[in-house]
Design a protein around this nucleic acid. Structure first.
Lengths: 226, 226
DNA sequence: ACCTGAACACCGTTCAAGT
DNA sequence: ACCTGAACACCGTTCAAGT
C-alpha cells in the first residue's frame, strides 16, 4: 500500500485541499481526519501543518473548494430569476459533495469565498431594486437556502429495512397524522417525512414560496415597522 | 473532588439524561462526553452503558428532554395562529439549550418524542383544512423551522474583537454589498450577516413569510401539478 | 534550520479478569 | 452473575530530540 521510495510530488495547500475533498467524497466526512489525510498523501501527519494551521482551517479550505464550484450569476433576467438560478446552481454543487452542507453549518466564520458568494447574492437583490432594509431581512429569511441547502427535518434515512407493515400499523395508531402523510407521499416506500419524496420539487416549492413572498413585499413597498 | 465513600443515589436513565443536559448547558455540547458525564455522576464510564446503549442513544435521549419542554398546542384560534404559537414555543425551548438545535440536526432518525411533536404539528394543518398534499409540501418547506430553529448563515460570531475600522474599510472595498448591509443592520457592532440583529424579529419575519404564502396557496385551492 | 517520531491528553467502546 | 480496570483503536496537536 505505502508507495515505494520514489520521489513524491511536493505537498501544497491546494494538493492537501483536493485530497481532503476526495477523501470526504469517498468515505464521508467522518473519514476526513488529519491522520488519515496524511497517510492518503503518503506523509506524516505533522507535514500537513505546514499548509493548514489546524483542522478548522482545513475545513474552511474544503468549503472554499466547494463554493468555488458554484456558477457565477447569470445576466439579463430579473432579480428573481437570477437569484433562483444561482441558488439552484449552489444546490447542485452541494449535492456533488454530500458532506458539504454539514461542514458549512459547522463553520463559525465565513471564509472569503463564502463572503464573495454572499456579496454577489446581496447584489442581485439590491440591483433588482429591493431596499437595503428588505434585503437584510430577506437574507436572514432565506438562511442556508441561499447556499443551496435547507435543514430538512429528517433526511430520508438509509432505511435499509423496508417499512415493516407491523411497525406501520403501530405508527398509524400512535401517530395517525404522520402515518397519513407517509402514505400520501409519492413513492412512500420508507419511514417518515423526508423519505421517498422528490427532493428537488420540495426544495423548489419552498424556494418559490419565499421568492413569491419577497416579490409581493417588494411590490407593495414593504418597510420594517421599527 | 471525588466524593467520600458515601452511598450515591443509584443511577437511572432519567438521572443520566438530566446530568447530560446540565453538562451541555454548562459547558457546551463539546463537553458532553461519556467519560466526563460519568465522572460528573461519580461513576465509572462503563456504568453509563447500563442505561444508554451508546452515545447516539444518549444524544437521542437529551433531544427528547428538550422536545419535552415544548408547550402543547393551544386551542381556539385558527391553524395559522396555532402553528405560529407552537413554533415560537419550540423556539424558546431550543433557546434555553443553545446546543440543542445542533444535536437535533445531527440525529439521523427521529425519536418518538420528536415524532409525537411532528404528528401534532401535522394535525394542526390537517384540522385547519389543508389538503394532505399541501400539508406534505408545507412540512418540507418549513424544514427545521417547525422545530423552532433555522439555519442562519453565520450566527453572530462571538466577535471578541470589535469591527476594526481598517478591516471594515477593506471589507467595503472587496465586498461592497456585504459592507452596505452590515452598516444598515440595526446595531451593527460586529461582522457580517447575522450579527447585531434582532434574532426574534428575523425569525418571525421568515416564519410569517412562509405562513402567509401557505395561507395564500390554501385559499386558492393549490394542488400539486404532478 | 528543518523535519518528524514520540508523546500528551483526550475520545467511544470492548473485553477479559476479578469478585 | 455482576461489575469494572485495563486495553484497544482511534483523535488533534505539542514538543523535544535528531539530522
Amino acid at each position: 500500500m505505502t508507495p515505494p521510495a520514489e520521489k513524491r510530488t511536493p505537498l501544497s495547500r491546494e494538493r492537501v485541499l483536493r485530497a481532503a475533498v476526495a477523501l470526504a467524497d469517498d468515505g464521508g466526512i467522518e473519514s476526513l481526519s488529519m491522520r488519515r489525510l496524511a497517510s492518503e498523501l503518503g506523509v506524516v501527519p505533522m507535514a500537513l501543518y505546514k499548509h493548514v494551521a489546524n483542522k478548522d482551517e482545513l475545513l474552511d479550505g474544503v468549503v472554499d473548494v466547494v463554493v468555488g464550484e458554484i456558477d457565477p450569476p447569470g445576466t439579463g433576467a430579473g432579480w428573481k430569476a437570477a437569484v433562483r438560478q444561482r441558488i439552484l446552481s449552489a444546490r447542485s454543487a452541494l449535492q456533488r459533495h454530500s458532506w458539504a452542507a454539514q461542514v458549512i453549518e459547522s463553520r463559525s466564520t465565513p471564509t472569503s469565498a463564502v463572503l464573495a458568494y454572499l456579496n454577489s447574492m446581496i447584489g442581485l437583490f439590491r440591483e433588482g431594486g429591493l431596499s437595503i432594509d428588505l434585503t437584510h431581512h430577506v437574507m436572514h429569511a432565506m438562511g442556508s437556502r441561499i447556499l443551496g441547502f435547507s435543514q430538512e427535518l429528517f433526511t430520508a434515512a438509509p432505511a435499509v429495512e423496508p417499512p415493516a407493515p407491523a411497525a406501520m400499523a403501530q405508527l398509524a395508531g400512535t401517530f395517525p397524522y404522520v402515518a397519513e402523510l407517509a402514505r400520501a407521499a409519492a413513492h412512500t416506500e420508507d419511514s417518515v417525512v423526508g423519505a421517498g419524496c422528490d427532493d428537488q420539487f420540495e426544495f423548489e416549492f419552498a424556494l418559490d414560496l419565499l421568492l413569491d413572498g419577497i416579490e409581493r413585499l417588494h411590490r407593495s413597498g414593504w418597510m420594517s415597522a421599527q
